[in-house]
Design a protein around this nucleic acid. Structure first.
Lengths: 348, 348
DNA sequence: TTGTAGGCGTTATCAA
DNA sequence: TTGATAACGCCTACAA
């Protein structure tokens, strides 16, 4: 097998293909793009395709984007924290479905601190069809910047509908509510909610805590019984967890239930509680979140709040494709990303 | 604050900026790119920058790429499995460091099955400066395709130097070896190695197993003692794990040590072993891999093989930048990605 | 110190 | 059914 004769050292262009096939450059474009409303003989098509193959021709995406004025890019600048397995599954489904709709989802990691109009400008340079990004990285100027650059859809991901643009609502409060409701229904009265101190997790923790408080307030009102909620700010650190557990061990009004933010924090608390001589769930019930596979293997098995189920991404991808099609800009448009569901197990 | 007067509905171009600033388009380009060897008055520069700001001008990345003939893109098509926290940390460091070198690392998730020349063509359309991809997704034709498209560096990630292109060697066998050495040094003689049956993990498992076998063969030869290695094909499933453990519980020549592939499988095995009445590490020692934070919280705490430490990515990024600069194509060039290190804990 | 002009590789319009 | 040809937005010699 011989190397294709490279006319020069530079990547082959459609002109090269045309020359080799003995047709005009326009014909190459027609054939390779299956241009509608153009009749080209099957013979010519074959010649063109053979030539393209032979040269290893790959159309220049930038040239195409420049000419057509649009790109099929859906930019998704992800913060580091998002690279969890849960998010990974969701992302894969999104990629797949958006691909079927003709879009290419691209993850931009890094520059986690880049936000506002500066970040928006960097994203805008690619003239993406859509940008899908954590709400707190968007400002009014950022959204305007993206629109100015022709971005058809700017989609925020946040705890509640953004005032700026359509939002994919990720209901962290709902997660806290689900956990709290479950615990209260089981007769627990003194709840504790862990709020991670890690900068990237803190905000999520706050919102989950808020959900616990909401649920407790509602249930407390209904039952007329005193429901207490203790807030526990906690780094992911054994010592810190042990200190909390030790305090509870000797406290008469210690919590009888803990919502541990997620499954990892749940293990952390589980160990600390057990080491402090507290029985789970006898003395203290425990609920995590994310429903990670290994959490079900602990003893006791950790109850968890399942967040993004399989198949949750498909519809979302269609929704986003619709936003792009309609160039939707109204902040009134939003969609719940989360389907929260408690998975009860031994620990609660 | 008024909206900038948009001359038209289309994204502002450098011509628009020039018009607003009252200068030529070339001047805009000079100013915005800080062109060397061109003297432009500070006054003019200010005017240009003000105009660009006012219009929300973002240079068209595709137009620039088309003109300059190169892009600063480093494409990294990742399989789904890679979106673990470990890989996330590594990725973030890579992004950062490559950014300092003027490159933009972009993750293409999905199309995990796309490989060979078809996938290469899709990647080539973006005329990336480099492509960083799992070795098994590359073929000779794929590498040639990328080179033909002007890709300066095609970097494979694989268990051993590729015959096609420079390789980032991810030493899975070394992980198995480290685990085996540790266990053998502690006097264990009948090793078992878990090979996950999940399609995406199986190959990695095979290589880690191979490492265990290698180490056992070497140690066996040296010690002259009979070292046995049992292969355990296992899905991530409690029932399957229980079956294995139950068999071992009544077997006189059961393993006295298990390398569980990773920390998640380690929990799986830990529970199964304990349920079967086997003591860890008394009857059976256990070693995982990845050194996930929560694994250290189990009882007994899981010994683990740490793989990519902090800072492992910085040098790698520099190495890749070098490959791009030199347009390095020799398969002889490779670099170890892994820095394997055992983290001994209670379970072994 | 600034402006003019050509061309990067495509797509798409209009003739032939 | 096919072939010239004109942009798309930007960079960069070269001219002024």
């Amino acid at each position: 097998m011989k190397l294709p004769p490279s006319a020069s050292d530079r990547p082959p262009t459609s002109v090269d293909v045309a020359r080799l096939a003995g047709v005009s450059q326009a014909t190459v474009s027609y054939v390779l793009n299956d241009a509608p409303g153009v009749r080209i003989s099957e013979e010519t098509r074959a010649k063109v395709r053979a030539a393209a193959d032979r040269l290893g021709y790959a159309p220049h995406a930038s040239a195409r984007a420049l000419k057509t004025g649009r790109s099929d890019l859906v930019l998704c600048p992800v913060p580091d924290v998002a690279l969890g397995s849960l998010f990974g599954i969701w992302m894969r489904e999104m990629t797949e479905r958006l691909g079927e709709r003709g879009f290419r989802l691209v993850l931009l990691q890094g520059d986690a601190q880049a936000k506002g109009v500066a970040a928006a400008r960097a994203w805008a340079e690619w003239r993406p069809a859509a940008v899908l990004v954590q709400e707190d990285r968007l400002t009014r100027a950022a959204v305007r910047q993206l629109h100015a650059a022709g971005t058809a859809a700017v989609v925020a991901i946040g705890p509640e509908p953004s005032a700026l643009t359509p939002t994919l609502v990720f209901d962290d409060a709902g997660i806290g509510r689900a956990a709290a409701r479950h615990l209260i229904e089981r007769g627990r009265r003194r709840l504790a909610a862990v709020v991670p101190t890690e900068p990237v997790l803190r905000d999520f923790g706050e919102r989950r805590l808020a959900g616990v408080l909401t649920e407790a307030a509602e249930a407390g009102g209904a039952a007329g019984s005193g429901l207490a909620v203790e807030r526990v700010d906690l780094p992911f650190d054994e010592g810190a967890a042990a200190a909390v557990a030790a305090r509870w061990a000797v406290s008469p009004d210690r919590p009888d239930a803990v919502f541990a933010y997620n499954d990892e924090y749940a293990v952390l608390m589980l160990r600390a509680l057990q080491d402090a001589g507290l029985d789970v769930p006898g003395d203290v019930a425990l609920v995590g979140a994310d429903d990670l596979p290994w959490a079900a293997l602990l003893r006791p098995r950790i109850s968890s709040v399942r967040i993004l189920g399989e198949g949750a991404a498909g519809d979302t991808a269609d929704w986003i494709a619709g936003l792009i099609r309609d160039r939707e800009r109204s902040p009134a448009v939003h969609r719940a990303l989360t389907r929260v569901e408690i998975v009860p197990r031994e620990s609660s």
